[in-house]
């Protein structure tokens, strides 16, 4: 039961990556490699601040801001310096590998001695659940899962509302058809900067949450995150559909949880953890290629 809950917690935390990739890849058609770097960036910035004695909420928010800055940098390199999307992301995420190491000071920092968001939540909600008769360890895990669920629901709602405002709608239009947005007076370069900033802030939030949940930050933890996000978006799309903005956002989040559950099942069935990233890549490849062979006209 605890393992199952923990799988959910992980899947939900990574749903923020899926939502971020939804914004960059689906709304802006931008395959944003920065994701890998900004996931770690969010984790190490938050970890560094918490170790230095800062409040976990503040630390997480600053981690998100750092992610936003990374995403904005990639977008500026692409939109204003004319470098291709993939290369822009590679450049920034390569640079981030150094930044992350410098911020963290070494390759791995434990968070056992600091108060994380999860510790705070467990301390406040855990006892209430225990008093209601829930087993103590289970209560703690339930509190953690519930907390991440609330965070993801909140973020998805904010995204939904934002992308239905006039500015958010203009952003979607700019990502969909730049000629149209420019002809209507939108600076599509700036819109891309905004979009990637949002996307990477979410990814950084996920990194920060994962570090706090697993109890350490590691400079390697972001590797493969962009592919994870795509896998979640594709899977969610296949399961739930993407009819409207709300459905598509819910689908991305659901895709992440489902994918995490699949991964847990595969591991239990004997898949060696070393093969995890390869399996994820294979899923994404299948999702990209399948529509072509199935004759579906839906964008993968």
């Amino acid at each position: 039961m605890i393992t199952l809950l923990s799988t959910w917690t992980f899947g939900l935390a990574l749903a923020l990556v899926a939502l971020g990739v939804f914004v960059s890849y689906r709304l802006f058609s931008f395959p944003d490699i920065t994701t890998d770097g900004s996931f770690t960036l969010g984790a190490v910035v938050a970890a560094g601040l918490m170790v230095a004695g800062h409040d976990p909420v503040v630390a997480t928010l600053i981690g998100m801001a750092a992610g936003a800055a990374a995403g904005a940098t990639t977008a500026v390199i692409h939109a204003f310096l004319g470098v291709e999307p993939l290369l822009s992301g590679i450049l920034v995420s390569t640079a981030l590998a150094s930044v992350n190491l410098v911020v963290l000071g070494r390759s791995n920092v434990p968070l056992g001695k600091v108060t994380t968001l999860f510790d705070a939540v467990e301390r406040t909600v855990g006892p209430m659940l225990s008093r209601a008769g829930v087993d103590r360890t289970l209560a703690g895990e339930l509190a953690r899962t519930g907390f991440v669920l609330l965070v993801v629901a909140f973020v998805a709602t904010v995204l939904y509302v934002f992308f239905r405002t006039r500015l958010g709608t203009a952003m979607r239009a700019g990502g969909d058809t730049p000629t149209m947005a420019r002809a209507l007076g939108r600076d599509t370069g700036l819109l891309t900067v905004g979009g990637l900033a949002i996307s990477n802030a979410l990814t950084a939030a996920a990194g920060s949450l994962v570090a706090q949940y697993q109890g350490f930050a590691d400079v390697q933890m972001g590797i493969g995150m962009v592919v994870w996000g795509m896998a979640s978006v594709f899977l969610g799309n296949a399961l739930v559909g993407a009819a409207g903005l709300g459905t598509a956002l819910a689908a991305a989040a659901a895709g992440s949880v489902t994918f995490r559950l699949l991964v847990a099942t595969a591991l239990r069935a004997g898949l060696h953890p070393d093969w995890l990233k390869a399996a994820t890549a294979a899923v994404v490849l299948a999702a990209l290629v399948a529509p072509r062979f199935l004759g579906s006209r839906r964008k993968p």
Partner: peptide, 17 residues
């Protein structure tokens, strides 16, 4: 689409589109 056009040449703002 019409909502985006209704903001042609001005800052869109955060109102409901």
């Amino acid at each position: 689409n019409l909502a985006v056009a209704a903001c042609r040449g001005r800052f869109p703002g955060f109102g409901w589109a």
